[in-house]
Simulated scan of single mutants.
Amino acid sequence: MGVPAGFSYERRADGSVIIWHHGRRAAVLRGARAQQLLAELEHGDEQAVMARWTGDYRRGNERVARNHPRNGGR
């Protein structure tokens, strides 16, 4: 599994937080969710935290899930 990279974030004056991925907006968080993200960023790997919040990360089980009978695999 690779290390997530290319994420950055911007705190806005209105309290919202924008997460950018390779220069493109990936998520906008407001209110309590924005505050929760900022708290997590203080205590963890910023790249991994932002990848998790945007859903842009791999778990390593995509091939296994694709082949499962429930998902149409054989």
Rank of each mutant, 00 (worst) to 15 (best):
M1H: 06
G2R: 13
V3L: 14
P4G: 02
P4R: 07
A5T: 05
A5C: 08
A5Q: 15
F7H: 03
F7V: 03
F7S: 06
F7M: 02
F7A: 04
S8I: 04
S8K: 03
S8P: 05
Y9S: 01
E10V: 09
R11I: 01
R11D: 10
R12F: 07
R12G: 01
R12Q: 05
A13K: 11
A13M: 09
D14S: 07
G15K: 03
S16C: 09
S16A: 13
S16Y: 06
V17M: 01
V17T: 04
I18N: 10
I18G: 09
I18K: 13
I19W: 08
H22P: 11
G23Y: 02
R24K: 09
R25C: 14
R25H: 14
R25M: 14
A27R: 10
A27T: 03
A27S: 12
R30V: 14
R30K: 14
R30H: 15
G31R: 11
G31D: 13
A32I: 14
A32V: 12
R33N: 12
R33A: 15
Q35S: 13
Q35P: 07
Q36C: 09
Q36M: 12
Q36V: 11
L37C: 00
L38R: 08
E40K: 08
L41I: 03
E42D: 11
E42S: 04
E42R: 04
E42N: 07
G44T: 06
G44F: 12
G44W: 00
D45Q: 07
D45C: 05
E46F: 02
Q47I: 02
Q47K: 01
A48I: 10
A48Q: 00
A48V: 00
V49M: 03
A51D: 02
A51Q: 02
A51M: 00
R52F: 15
W53Y: 04
T54D: 00
T54Y: 05
G55R: 00
G55P: 00
D56I: 03
Y57E: 08
Y57H: 00
Y57R: 01
Y57T: 01
Y57N: 06
R58K: 12
R59Q: 08
R59F: 08
G60A: 03
N61I: 06
E62P: 06
E62L: 02
E62M: 07
R63M: 15
A65T: 04
A65P: 01
R66C: 09
N67E: 15
H68K: 05
P69A: 08
R70C: 13
N71Y: 15
N71W: 15
G72Q: 10
G73R: 12
G73T: 10
